[in-house]
Amino acid sequence: MPVDDVLERIRAQMNLEAEREHEVLEEIRGHLEDAVAAGRERGLDDDAALAEAVARFGVEQVGEELQATHEGWGVMEGIAAAAIPVLCALVLRWLVFDPAGTFSGWQQVVSRPAFWLIAVAGLVIPALRFPRRRYALASWAIFWSLSVIMIVGGAVQR
């Protein structure tokens, strides 16, 4: 029974986001490989070493616990991912740009410290919040897209 088969048994009990699931299983793969190597050093053959590693690991229970632990994290990240750029865009729109929704004085906006503060916060907050950088970059891109839409949309309506 290769390590991949054991990982498949664990995977069967989980229903996580693909990338998170991959990371979890890679971590477990490392654990099982270390445990098998330790068994071999004690003189066990490959099958016996893996069987021992699997028994000590507690495959069935671990899959359920991992699912229970990770359940709902994606939802919370999704809510945060949606909320952060929207909030930043609103703050930028109403506090830094002209609240009346015109372009008046937009050249001066970039010289205001508040503009740069919000621009940096729009990147740093998601970078600290999310373990993956691309989430932070995606959040930042959404923030700027929303900002442009709101500012241009407001100006056009005028």
């Binding site: 979890v24 477990i28 000590r56 671990v62």
Partner: peptide, 10 residues
């Protein structure tokens, strides 16, 4: 059960 350390670590 060794595997139970992972849910805790996560």
């Amino acid at each position: 059960n060794e595997g139970l350390i992972y849910p805790r670590l996560h």
